[in-house]
Amino acid sequence: MKIGEMAERFGFELLTTPRNAEMEVEGGYASDLLSDVIARAESGNVWVTTQTHVNIVAVASLKELAAVVIVSGRKPDEETIDLAKTKGVCLLGAQSPAYEVAGRLYEAGIRGSPK
């Protein structure tokens, strides 16, 4: 599934306009611990998190993640959104909490790694 298609299908808010809307989402990862994401997320993953701090942009950029879905209706501050725009990181917002979002994505075929 492509990023743009995923955002539309699940009603994610576009916190940044995705530059990579046509990029294929390759699996997903859910965590609120940055070092855990750094160790275990794979490039092309969609990252489901409650974190909103500017560091999520650096992590997403470094790991070449497809998109970050910020859950539970939490809103990143302006600094985070501005840096995401600069770095071309796709930030999406979901009203539902993490378990629900990850479950829906999984159901739609976006799987995690079982390890």
Binding site: D32, L33, L34, S35, D36, I38, A39, T49, Q51, H53, N55, I56
Partner: peptide, 16 residues
């Protein structure tokens, strides 16, 4: 910790 740090995984990640 509120920013997502503090798992105590950074240095072990480096070592690996």
């Amino acid at each position: 910790r509120e920013m997502g740090f503090g798992a105590g995984m950074g240095l072990p990640n480096i070592k690996k």
